[in-house]
């Protein structure tokens, strides 16, 4: 998983360079050979050879559909293809659509709750798994397992656990003589069930990234801290937390994006209900695109999700320029 992720990052990173950014690291490498045209040509060819396949894949499967979605969002749709230009009408409709705002608010709340919690739990577990915990390999596998299984399958397991009438949790509560929790019929409980399942799915990934971060910290630093009389908490607070900063930054962005993308868990577990209490932007876009068959409006929602995520990432990136020096 992590190898795959880093491969993707690298390819998209290079792709960004192609887009006209100021000359970055690879370009400087090539200028070292300036003056010898054949050599420069060879390296340009090599670069194109390495970049080409990725650029083609990204172009066909990412940028083309993205551009297309943007086009569709300015058109009117009859369910079987766009039928005419309407300018910004779909976006104007968004502004006055209360369900859109409710879904946007739910998405924001979901993100604000899940991101810090999954980061904290991921770091906690990583610290635990990095210690001399007996059977830690098994625990690591178990914690990571939900990430490997299809999202729909994990959400169905969520239904088995949280179904209000037949779910395991309410059965246990009933057996224990306690009041059951209205997991599907009450908004807050439904939202909580989605968050719990999301955390279950996500902490494994965060744990693995943090684990990699932790393993690159030199044990001598901790030794020095202990000699200085630092307590375990102080070591964690003043050594571990800052030193896994680059991992935190990476995970923060990834988790925010995952949270904005949340779909399968909600689609399967609550369908956006009760009422609109678990409706998020992607489920609302899906509903418009594939139930109401208004794909133009759905595309407009998709573009809004894209812009929000992009702005967040850009802001984070600007605010964290110093991060490269820490890692």
């Amino acid at each position: 998983m992590s190898a795959d992720t880093s491969a993707r990052e690298e390819s998209t990173g290079e792709a960004a360079d192609e887009g006209g950014d100021p000359p970055a690291f690879p370009a400087r490498t090539y200028t070292a050979g300036a003056g010898r045209a054949p050599a420069r040509q060879r390296s340009t060819c090599a670069a194109a050879g390495f970049l080409g396949p990725n650029l083609i894949l990204l172009g066909v499967f990412l940028f083309l559909p993205l551009g297309w979605a943007l086009l569709i969002s300015f058109q009117e749709s009859n369910g079987f293809g766009a039928s005419g230009w309407v300018g910004l009408a779909n976006y104007q409709r968004l502004v006055t659509d209360p369900t859109f705002w409710q879904s946007a608010l739910n998405t924001a709340v979901f993100t604000v709750i899940t991101v810090p919690l999954s980061l904290a739990l991921g770091l906690g577990l990583a610290v635990l798994m990095n210690s001399v915990l007996p059977g830690r390999r098994i625990f690591r596998t178990l914690v990571y397992l939900p990430m490997v299984i299809s999202g729909i399958a994990t959400a169905l397991m969520g239904v088995l656990l949280f179904d209000e009438v037949t779910g395991i949790l309410n059965k246990l509560l009933r057996e224990g003589g306690l009041a059951t929790i209205p997991w599907q019929s009450q908004g807050t409980a439904a939202f909580a069930s989605i968050i719990l399942v999301t955390l279950w799915i996500r902490v494994g990934f965060n744990m693995v990234i943090y684990l990699a971060g932790l393993q690159s910290i030199s044990p001598e630093l901790y030794e020095a801290a202990r000699l200085e009389g630092a307590s375990s908490w102080q070591q964690f607070r003043y050594l571990t937390v800052p030193l896994v900063g680059p991992s935190t930054f990476f995970l923060l962005i990834m988790n925010v994006i995952y949270s904005f993308q949340v779909f399968d868990t909600i689609f399967v577990m609550t369908g956006g209900g009760p009422g609109r209490s678990t409706s998020v932007l992607v489920t609302y876009a899906y509903e418009n695109g594939f139930v109401t068959r208004d794909q133009s409006y759905a595309a407009a929602i998709g573009i809004v999700i894209f812009l929000i995520t992009l702005i967040f990432t850009a802001v984070q990136w600007k605010g964290n320029r110093s991060r490269d020096d820490v890692g």
Binding site: L58, F263, L281, Q295, I301, L310
Partner: peptide, 12 residues
């Protein structure tokens, strides 16, 4: 990459 995928999730 993920941001673009998020947008596509909703519309394509």
């Amino acid at each position: 990459f993920l941001a673009a995928a998020a947008a596509l999730n909703g519309c394509a």
